[in-house]
Every structure is written in C-alpha cells, then in structure tokens.
C-alpha cells in the first residue's frame, strides 16, 4: 500500500472513531457518573471522565432505591412470554398465507398489514378501554397480549415460507404428512434465520417498551425495567450518580444480547428493507 493510501486510510479511521464517540459518548458519560466516588464531581469544566477509583456504591443504591430485581424479573417475564407467543402466532398465520389457497386469504393479509398504519397514540386510548373491559387493566396479560400480533413478523415469515422450494412441501404432502407436521418439521427449521431475527427484534422492542405499560399498569410492582428507570428519575432527591448507575444496569441485558447477535440484527434489517 502506498503512503498516500495509508494516510487516507488512517484519516478514515480517525473519522469513523470520532463519529463512534458521538454515538457511544452519552453512554460513557453515564457509565462514568455511575462509577464516580462521592468526592469526585459529576459535572465540571473540563469534564473529568475517569472515575478515581470506580465504585459500585451507586449501583447498590439504585438497586435498593427501587425494587430493581423485581423490575428486571418483570422485564424477563414480559420478554419471555411475549416473544415466543409472537413468533408462534406469526408463523402459524404466515404458513397458510404463503402456501395455501383459501377464500379470504388476501383480505386477511391486507387487514393484518393495515395495522402498521395505525399510529400508537391513536390506538392507546381505545385499546386501554378494551383491555379494561376485558378485565386485563393492570395485569401482565394486559401488557403482553396487545403486543403479540405483529404485521412485521407475519410479513417477514410469509416471505421466508414462500421461498422454501415447492418440491419439498409437495413431497411431504404426497407422503401424507399432516399440514401441522409439515409446518413443524419442514417450514420452521427452514425459517430458522428469520425466526432468530424476529426473536432479537422482539426482545429489543419488548425490553424497551414504555408507553403501553405506562398506560396499562397502575401497580408499580408490575413495572418493566424501563418504567422503573423513569420512576427512579422522577423520585426527587435521587442522586445523579445512582440514577446513572441504575440506567446503565437497565441497558446491560439488551446491549449484551445485541452484541452477541449483532450480525443477525444488521442482516435482518437488510432483509426487512428488501422484503
């Protein structure tokens, strides 16, 4: 590589790193604030980022100021129930839409697609009233069930199923396989990458969900962790250090899952746009 090329490349990395700092910086500031000892100022000109020494006191304080373990467990329950349900419902619905012919097929497909064009603010109020009518206000079911139907999931899986070679399906059918067996033993394994993508996107969106649980839940013992953080931030007298520490704890699970599965997330985005 020639010298000008090398300089160009070095310059490119400087630029890429500077931009990365813009995206990661606010989280680093939060991390730094959450780890600083009591004697070190959180805010100063010039900024004093490195905690000397890093302490976990504020993480402990945040952990006990609000029922943190409960909120984390709640979020795990919301994710753990919503995501499998949403994948199963989407896959079941996508299968006949992709591979069977029946009356009302297009109507069903367009009805489901139309849900993408209902803004969440508009649906918030009537959905809250419906959920209350069903006796599900302030319950886990009330938080979970409205989030199970996803036009995005059905759409993506329908594309995937339609891409499975017809011969495979027809061969299984002539062997006398029941449709449910074909679905379970042929289609689901073939759609594994798409299922992984839906799983991760589902995890991220349920873990971060805010406005719907805010509306449905009255009892703070059922809060997911994002609501818990807003609650912590709203308590007057919460120390800026413990708020920072608590916020960092709340994003660690989702950041870890994202880092492990990042290739799927970014590939999945591409597939979704093309689909």
């Amino acid at each position: 590589m020639s010298l000008p090329m090398r300089l160009r490349r070095a310059g490119m990395y400087v630029l890429l790193t500077a931009i990365a700092l813009v995206f990661v910086g606010p989280f680093l500031i939060l991390l730094s604030a959450g780890l600083k000892p009591a004697g070190q100022a959180v805010f100063s000109f010039p900024p004093d980022i490195v905690p000397r020494p890093p302490v976990l006191d504020w993480a402990v304080e945040a952990w006990t100021a609000i029922p943190f373990p409960t909120y984390l467990l709640n979020s795990v329950i919301y994710v753990g129930v919503t995501v499998p349900l949403y994948i199963v419902v989407s896959a079941l619905c996508a299968y006949p839409l992709a591979l069977m012919t029946f009356r009302g097929k297009n109507l069903i497909f367009f009805a489901i697609l139309s849900t993408m064009f209902l803004p969440s603010e508009v649906m918030l109020i009537p959905r809250f009233l419906v959920v209350s009518e069903l006796g599900m206000a302030d319950t886990f079911a009330g938080v979970i069930l409205p989030g199970v139907l996803s036009a995005f999931g059905i759409f993506l899986l329908r594309q995937t199923f339609a891409g499975v070679p017809r011969e495979v399906v027809d061969a299984a059918r002539t062997d006398g396989c029941h449709e449910l067996r074909i679905f379970w033993h042929v289609m689901l394994p073939a759609a594994r990458p798409t299922l992984a993508i839906l799983g991760i996107f589902g995890f991220i969106s349920v873990w971060n969900s805010f406005i719907w649980p805010l509306v449905v839940l009255k009892d703070s013992a059922k809060y997911p962790v994002a609501l818990g953080i807003a609650y912590l931030a709203g308590i007057t007298g919460t120390d800026v250090r413990s708020l920072a520490a608590g916020t960092i704890i709340s994003i660690i699970p989702v950041v870890i899952v994202f880092m492990i599965m990042q290739r799927h997330v970014l590939e999945g985005m591409r597939g979704a746009v093309k689909g």
Partner: peptide, 13 residues
C-alpha cells in the same frame, strides 16, 4: 454496531 447502539437501548435510558 457502535452507530446502531442507541437504536437498541430504551428511549428512557
């Protein structure tokens, strides 16, 4: 991945 990080974190955080 780093540029995408804010997308996966909650708006509250």
């Amino acid at each position: 991945m780093l540029y995408y990080l804010p997308v996966v974190t909650s708006m509250v955080a």
